[in-house]
Design a protein around this nucleic acid. Structure first.
Length: 466
RNA sequence: GGCGUGGUACCCAAGCAGCAAGGGAGCGGUCUGCAAAACCGUUAUGCGUGGGUGCAACUCCCACCCACGCCUCCA
């Protein structure tokens, strides 16, 4: 399969370090608030990627972190800690906040049919690993202690700093948007370990002892430390959002490689943003839409998943409600077709035709996860009239769904129809038998008002909640 | 100011040198007592604008316009 590697800015043929085995690290959520659908788009992309790896026969070891250490509102040694803000807002302990939002996150991804990682790792449970990594960096001479006592990474010592993000270091306007920190040798240096004592922000709750004094870890160190712990000093793939390329991942690479002295990650994949009319969605901007706000409006979470699949992961996705409606309708037609295929038979099967569809589908997903093209194959197969029988179509579509994750086999059952509605349906049937259409239509309208739609399909009556 | 991405029908969106995928919506039709669902047909001589290279350009090159992202925590 081919994937676009941010390291080379090219599509590359994927070759894992170990045959048939893939080590995968995906940047996880910060848990001081709900995830929004922009965050979730990235996890959907990563899920499609993981499912594609699995369908190519790889065993995948997937690690995802949970950032339950607060981030400062600025990467400098100032600003409030977001976790502390949540603590003040919700009057809970940091642990309670973190657990609450981590659970909410897991619920969200489960609703989106996203496969769980093999290992969840919480930052607060790996402070010792982070300290060890900072010590290695220190021992190798890549760090210094500022006047305020914070430990900084010395980017000038790391020869390839910024190559990953193609940063033009000479032309970066440091301080253009943020205050230059006097304690750093260079504005682009970043904190490995914050010291409580030196911090301008005094109310910080989470803190630990370290060789440099009591404090808390710099933001970037957690991913480096935990991924190395679970996947080794050199592993296959690291994923995240595009916003992380220039700072977070650039710094992670610097730290990890300064500590180990070897190449850290072979492939980097980044998902593009979901944006609204007024720009990107961000927790810090506060213009975010959660999955719950979708389900509150009776959208199937998988309609959002379909919406994500309709655009390539490296392209910005414009979110609006019309677009979500469009995805919902498409998914519903798709499911309806699957149901019909399951329940009916058709023409004779031409095996070579099936193989043709299968290979086109696999070509699409293996070409840097081209899901719009994969969906095209799905629709063409659905509407294929000539050569493939319905049972075969049904089988192969469910096979495709192992990657799409749209739960296409799900059938909107009539099983939970209340007795009251059931009685009305019987009543309507009686009118229909007598050809009293007026009365029958009245009953249909009554059923509709109670929230159900009746369809007189050729094979019988179907009832669906609206 | 620097770096980057993108502008394809009413909307979303593939394609990226050789007859412009797919979905949604609209319209017309088949089916139906009527609906609904489903299906069929239909909607870009055109791919932001202006130049250039090529037998051939949405696809390559140059300029310009517009939008968005990153350079600050952020998916």
């Amino acid at each position: 399969m081919k994937i676009y590697n941010t390291l080379s800015r090219k599509k590359e043929t994927f070759k894992p370090i170990e045959k048939d085995f893939v080590s995968l690290y995906t940047c996880g959520p910060t848990v001081y608030n709900y995830a929004h659908i922009g965050n979730l788009r990235t996890y959907v992309f990563e899920d499609i990627f993981k499912r594609t790896l699995l369908s190519n026969g790889y065993k995948v070891k997937h690690v995802m972190n949970i950032t339950d250490v607060g981030h400062l509102t600025s990467d400098e040694d100032e600003g409030e800690d977001k976790m502390d803000v949540a603590v003040a807002r919700e009057k809970k302990t940091p642990e309670e906040i973190a657990d609450f939002y981590a659970d909410a996150f897991k619920e969200d991804i489960s609703k989106l049919n996203i496969l769980q990682p093999d290992i969840w790792c919480k930052a607060t449970e790996h402070i010792a690993d982070m300290i060890k990594l900072v010590e290695r960096i220190e021992k190798n001479g890549y760090s210094y202690v500022g006047k305020n006592g914070n430990v900084y990474f010395d980017t000038s010592k790391f020869a390839n700093y910024g190559n990953f993000a193609k940063l033009d270091l000479d032309n970066l306007q440091s301080g253009a948007r943020i205050e230059i920190d006097e304690d750093k040798k260079h504005p682009r240096d970043f904190v490995l370990w914050f010291l409580t004592k030196g911090s301008k922000f005094k109310g910080h709750i989470l803190k630990w002892n370290s060789p440099w004094g009591e404090g808390w870890p710099g933001w970037h160190i957690e991913c480096s430390a935990m991924s190395i712990k679970y996947l080794g000093e050199n592993f296959d793939i690291h994923c995240g959002g595009v916003d992380h390329i220039s700072i977070h991942h650039t710094n992670e690479i610097a730290q990890a490689e300064a500590a180990t002295g070897k190449k850290w990650v072979n492939y980097w994949l980044h998902g593009e943003f979901l944006i609204m009319k007024q720009g990107k969605m961000a927790k810090s901007v506060g213009n975010f839409v959660t999955l719950k706000s979708l389900t509150d409006k009776n959208y199937d979470p998988l309609a959002f998943r379909y919406m994500c699949l309709n655009t390539h992961y490296r392209k910005k996705l414009n979110f609006d409600w019309e677009g979500l409606d469009s995805a919902r309708n498409a998914l519903s037609t798709l499911r309806e077709n699957i149901r019909i295929l399951k329940e009916t038979d058709g023409l004779k099967t031409a095996q070579e035709k099936i193989e043709d569809y299968r290979s086109k589908f696999l070509d699409a997903i293996n070409d840097d996860l081209n899901m719009p093209r994969a969906l095209e194959v799905v629709w063409k197969l659905i509407r294929e009239e000539e050569h493939i029988n319905n049972q075969k179509k049904y089988e192969i579509l469910l096979e495709f769904d192992k990657i799409l994750g749209l739960d296409l086999g799900r059938i909107e059952t009539s099983s939970k129809i209340p007795k009251e509605i059931d009685a009305l349906i019987k009543k309507r049937e009686e009118y229909r038998k007598k050809k009293d259409w007026e009365k029958a239509d009245e009953v249909r309208e009554e059923i509709r008002k109670k929230g159900y739609i009746i369809e007189d399909a050729p094979e019988g009556i179907r009832v669906k909640p609206i």
